[in-house]
């Protein structure tokens, strides 16, 4: 029942609009803008040759060969393709907390704050992804290791604590600059907890060299699943991905095994 109920709940506002936005991001990523996406950073033969001699120089060369403008545009499209469904609850909170004539503007201000944080988080994640690939010689093991790391992160209490914090709503004033400031502040704070809870999965998505769009969709679905899981006291637990595959794992005694972990 929960899975069917979840799917049916997506028919209500604001889900449809958010999935449409994510779909636009995917389509644009699949079109011309995709050439600026992160995995292609490592595909230059010059970079590959240099990697073996000096990894630091190779990273620098890779960055130099890929201008930041298109690179950040690619990152922005990646965010557009993956993040909108995660914002259903805060967007509704902003909408309901604002005067009717200010609602569109309030949403825009929230998104400005939210996107600013994620755009700032992009370069470090990209650099780390590139560095790991170069150190790993482009091996699939790098991607595999990052997925394992993300799964461990999804199981740990720190991620749960950050997800819980991300569910916290903030006061939105109704009038004047206070209202505008609250919307931006809420966007920034929400994004900080979003980055803190999702970064290993985003790193894994950035690092995937082939099937990049499929990876984006899969990671987006995983992050949405984690966001939809109800808050609970932080403790070791089965990752949302494994629980989705086999609900029996939700009852398995991981928390007992790792209670003191």
């Amino acid at each position: 029942m929960p899975r069917a109920a979840t799917l049916r709940s997506f028919a209500h506002p604001p889900w449809r609009a958010l999935f449409v936005a994510a779909g636009c991001g995917l389509v644009l990523s699949a079109c011309g803008m995709a050439t600026a996406t992160v995995p292609l950073l490592c595909r230059s033969s010059a970079i590959s040759e240099l990697t073996a001699a000096n990894a630091a120089d190779a990273v620098a060369l890779a960055i130099a060969l890929n201008p930041p403008g298109p690179l950040m545009a690619g990152w922005a499209l990646m965010l557009l393709a993956m993040m909108p469904p995660l914002l259903a609850a805060p967007l509704m909170h902003v909408w309901r907390s604002s005067l009717p004539q200010r609602r569109q503007g309030s949403l825009a201000l929230f998104l400005i704050g939210y996107c600013a944080v994620w755009m700032a988080a992009g370069p470090p994640l990209i650099v780390v992804a590139v560095a790991l690939h170069m150190l790993g010689g482009g091996s699939l093991w790098v991607t595999f290791s990052l997925v394992i790391m993300a799964l461990v992160w999804s199981a740990c209490p720190w991620q749960r604590a950050m997800l819980n914090r991300g569910h916290r709503q903030m006061r939105i004033s109704l009038f004047g600059w206070a209202a505008a400031g609250d919307c931006v502040r809420y966007g920034v704070v929400h994004a900080i907890w979003c980055v803190a809870s999702c970064w290993p999965w985003m790193l894994a998505a950035v690092a995937v060299q082939d099937w990049h769009l499929a990876a984006m969709m899969a990671v987006g679905a995983i992050m949405l699943g984690e966001r939809l899981a109800p808050p609970e006291p932080p403790r070791w637990r089965w990752p949302a991905l494994l629980r989705a595959i086999d609900p029996r794992s939700a009852r398995a005694p991981l928390q007992g095994l790792l209670r003191h972990g």
């Binding site: 029942m1 929960p2 109920a5 979840t6 049916r8 709940s9 939809l228 899981a229 109800p230």
Partner: peptide, 26 residues
């Protein structure tokens, strides 16, 4: 509303059977 009629999407409402055997009543 279907969301009300179906119950929550992220966790089942679950009651024990008479005797307590699995599965419970959702």
């Amino acid at each position: 509303d279907s969301r009300w009629r179906d119950g929550p999407a992220d966790r089942l409402f679950l009651m024990p059977q008479l005797g307590g055997a699995d599965p419970g009543i959702t």
